[in-house]
Design a protein around this nucleic acid. Structure first.
Length: 575
DNA sequence: CATATTGTAA
DNA sequence: CAATGTACAATATG
C-alpha cells in the first residue's frame, strides 16, 4: 500500500483512528467512520476515534461487512492500516453472528456452525448454570429463562449472540394509524426516515421478522411517532417506559391523537394514577421504587401483569440497572429502544446491546438538518478569563469549589450583555447550573427565572408569554434538561454546565433544534466558559457528542477584537 | 373522610 | 458536585 499524506486518517496499532478535521472530504469520511468507530476525543483539528468490539458488532448487526470497513480505511488512511488492526477487526466482526439463538417450538437453542467455539463455550465455568444438554455438535439446549443472562454473559466474554429466536405474540390489540382522511385538518404521515426506522426494527428487507433493537434518532426527529408506528405494526398490548411524567403525558396525547385507540385503552402508570390498560405508559422511576431499603421492587410485576407483546424503552440511555435485570428475564417479548445517543455516562452500553438489542437504525442530526426537519445550529464557545481575585480564590480552593467559581465567573455577565444586544430581535434562552448565578443574571437582565421550585402553573404562564413573543428572554435552571414543554428559542446561551455530561449537552441543544418559522431555520448555541479552568476541560468533553453528530464548534476568546469579528460572523450567518 | 400540602428518601 | 423530579408517607385542611 502506497503512502499518501493527503489522506485524512491515521490508523494506529491500538485500534484508534486519528482524523484530520480540515480535510476536504471530512463530511463523507465521517459518515462512514461513525458507523463502526466511536469518537473519544475532539480537539479542534484532530479527532480521535476508537474501534471497539461493541462498535464493530453494532455495525455488523446493521449489515456492514468487514470488507466495506477495510476498503474504506485503506482508501483514507495516510499510512495504510496495520495488519494487527485488520486481523483484530476481522476477528470481532466475524464473531457477530457466529452464535445464534434459535427456537424450535418452545425449545430454545444456542447454535453455531463453528463446533470448536461451541465446545469452548461449553467448557466455560461461568456459563454452566445456563447451558443444558448438547444436541449434536452444533446446538446446545438452553432454558428460555436464561435467554437474557446468557446473551449478557457471552457478550462480556466477547461472543455476541444474534438472537433469532421467536418472540411471543402477546395480547392482540388492533392498532392503526390515523390516515389523512380521518383527520383532514391534521394530516399525518410518516416521514421517509421514520418509515425506514420502523422497517429496520422489523427487518422488512430480508423478510425475517426481528423484534428487538435500538433506534438512534436526534431529538426533534419524532421518536414518539416512530414508537407509535411500531406499535401499530405489532398490534399488541404494549408497555412503554419513559423517563418522567411529562413524557408519559406526551406519549398518551400523541397515541390518542395519531391512532384509532381510545382514551380508555391507554393507561398511565405513575405516582398519581396506576392504570394497567392494553397500552400502558410508566416511568422508570416507579419501576425502581422500593418501599423501604431492603424491600423488593414492588412495581416490577408490571412486566408480568399483562401479556405484553411489545415493550418500548424511551430514552434507553437512561435505563436504570434494576430495569436491566428485569429486562434480562423478559427476552421473549419484543423490545424497542429509542434514544438520541447510545452513550451512557455509566458505560453500560454493552448491556443495552445484549438485553435490548443492537442498533438497528441511526440517523445523523446533520442529515435531518439538511432536509429541513430541524433547525441548522451553529455552536459557539466563548472563553472568558477569571478576574484576578477569582483566580486567586480558584487556586486556593478544593476541586469542588473550583468548579463553582469557574461556573459563576462574574465576567460572563459582560458576554451575556453583548450577546443579548447582538440578538435583540430573537427569542433567547439562558441555561445554567447554579441558582445563585442564575438569580444574579435574572436581576441584571430583568428577565424571569424558572427553577425547580417554581410551580408548574407559573412556568406554563411564562412559557406561553415566551411563545407568543411577548417575552424575549427566559432564564432556566436544570429544569430545562427534561422539560418537554419548554418552548423553543432561536438562541440559547449556556452559562454553566455540569460534569461534562454529553447527555445534558444534547438535551440543551435539542431545545433550539425545532424548525424555526422565521424562514432562515437557523439557531445559535453559545457556551460561555471560564478560560484555563476545569470548566474548559469539561466543556471539551461535552462537545464530544455534538462533534460526533457532525457539528463544528467554533471557539473564541473574549477580547474586544473578537467581539467585533463575532458580530460580523453571526450577522453573515443569520442573513 | 377525601383532598391538598408538606416532608423525605434514594 | 448541585439541583431536580419522582413516589409515597405524614400531616393539614375544608
Amino acid at each position: 500500500m502506497k503512502w499518501d499524506p493527503t489522506r485524512p486518517l491515521i490508523v494506529q496499532n491500538d485500534m484508534s483512528v486519528l482524523f484530520e478535521t480540515n480535510h476536504p472530504d471530512y463530511e463523507t469520511v465521517r459518515q462512514t467512520l461513525v458507523k463502526f468507530a466511536d469518537l473519544v476525543k475532539s480537539p479542534e483539528h484532530l479527532h480521535t476515534y476508537r474501534i471497539t468490539p461493541l462498535s464493530l458488532w453494532n455495525a455488523a448487526a446493521g449489515g456492514m461487512r468487514f470488507a466495506e470497513m477495510t476498503v474504506f480505511l485503506q482508501n483514507y488512511a495516510k499510512f495504510g492500516v496495520p495488519t494487527a488492526v485488520l486481523s483484530s477487526m476481522r476477528k470481532y466482526v466475524k464473531r457477530y453472528g457466529l452464535l445464534r439463538m434459535e427456537n424450535v417450538g418452545d425449545e430454545l437453542y444456542l447454535v453455531s456452525e463453528d463446533t470448536v467455539v461451541l465446545k469452548e463455550i461449553c467448557a466455560l465455568d461461568s456459563l454452566q448454570s445456563y447451558l443444558h444438554d448438547r444436541r449434536g455438535d452444533r446446538a446446545i439446549a438452553i432454558s428460555p429463562a436464561h435467554r437474557g443472562h446468557l446473551k449478557q454473559e457471552l457478550t462480556k466474554l466477547g461472543y455476541p449472540v444474534e438472537d433469532a429466536a421467536a418472540y411471543r405474540q402477546g395480547e392482540y390489540v388492533p392498532i392503526s394509524l390515523c390516515s389523512d382522511t380521518d383527520h383532514a385538518d391534521k394530516p399525518f404521515q410518516l416521514r421517509d426516515y421514520q418509515k425506514q426506522a420502523v422497517d429496520a426494527f422489523e427487518r422488512i428487507g430480508d423478510g425475517r421478522s426481528i423484534g428487538s433493537g435500538v433506534l438512534v434518532l436526534p431529538c426533534g426527529a419524532g421518536k414518539t411517532i416512530i414508537g407509535i408506528a411500531a406499535m401499530a405494526r405489532c398490534s399488541c398490548a404494549t408497555l412503554i417506559l419513559t423517563s418522567n411524567v411529562t413524557s408519559v403525558r406526551q406519549w398518551k396525547r400523541e397515541i390518542i391523537e395519531k391512532t384509532d385507540l381510545t382514551e380508555d385503552q391507554v393507561g398511565e402508570y405513575s405516582g398519581a394514577v396506576k392504570e394497567v390498560r392494553p397500552i400502558t405508559i410508566a416511568t422508570y422511576q416507579i419501576m425502581t421504587h422500593r418501599g423501604s431499603k431492603d424491600d423488593q421492587f414492588s412495581h416490577m410485576q408490571l412486566f408480568h401483569e399483562r401479556e405484553w407483546g411489545l415493550i418500548i424503552y424511551d430514552e434507553v440511555h437512561l435505563l436504570p440497572a434494576p430495569v436491566f435485570r428485569a429486562t434480562a428475564d423478559i427476552q421473549a417479548t419484543k423490545r424497542l429502544g429509542l434514544t438520541a445517543t447510545l452513550i451512557r455516562e455509566d458505560g453500560r452500553e454493552e448491556d443495552v446491546f445484549s438485553l435490548v438489542g443492537p442498533r438497528r437504525y441511526e440517523m445523523a442530526w446533520k442529515e435531518l438538518e439538511a432536509k429541513g426537519w430541524i433547525a441548522t445550529v451553529a455552536c459557539k464557545e466563548i472563553r472568558v478569563p477569571l478576574s484576578t481575585a477569582d483566580r486567586d480564590q480558584y487556586a486556593a480552593s478544593g476541586a469542588r469549589q473550583q468548579f463553582r467559581i469557574a461556573g459563576e465567573n462574574a465576567g460572563k455577565l459582560d458576554v451575556i450583555d453583548h450577546l443579548l444586544k447582538l440578538h435583540a430581535k430573537e427569542q433567547k434562552l439562558i441555561i445554567g447550573q447554579y441558582l445563585d448565578q442564575l438569580e444574579r443574571i435574572a436581576a441584571h437582565t430583568g428577565a424571569p427565572l424558572i427553577s425547580g421550585e417554581m410551580a408548574h402553573d407559573d412556568r406554563e404562564k411564562l412559557y406561553q408569554q415566551f411563545k407568543a413573543g411577548r417575552l424575549p428572554l427566559l432564564i432556566v435552571s436544570k429544569v430545562a434538561n427534561f422539560a418537554v414543554d419548554l418552548p423553543d428559542a432561536a438562541v440559547a446561551i449556556q452559562v454553566s454546565g455540569s460534569y461534562g455530561s454529553r447527555q445534558e449537552e444534547a438535551q440543551r441543544l435539542g431545545r433550539i433544534l425545532r424548525p424555526k418559522r422565521n424562514g432562515e431555520n437557523a439557531a445559535v448555541f453559545y457556551t460561555i466558559i471560564s478560560e484555563d479552568t476545569k470548566e474548559q476541560d469539561f466543556a471539551l468533553k461535552r462537545q464530544l457528542f455534538l462533534v460526533e453528530q457532525g457539528y463544528q464548534y467554533s471557539i473564541s476568546a473574549w477580547t474586544e477584537q473578537i467581539q467585533e469579528g463575532e458580530r460580523d460572523e453571526v450577522r453573515a450567518y443569520l442573513s
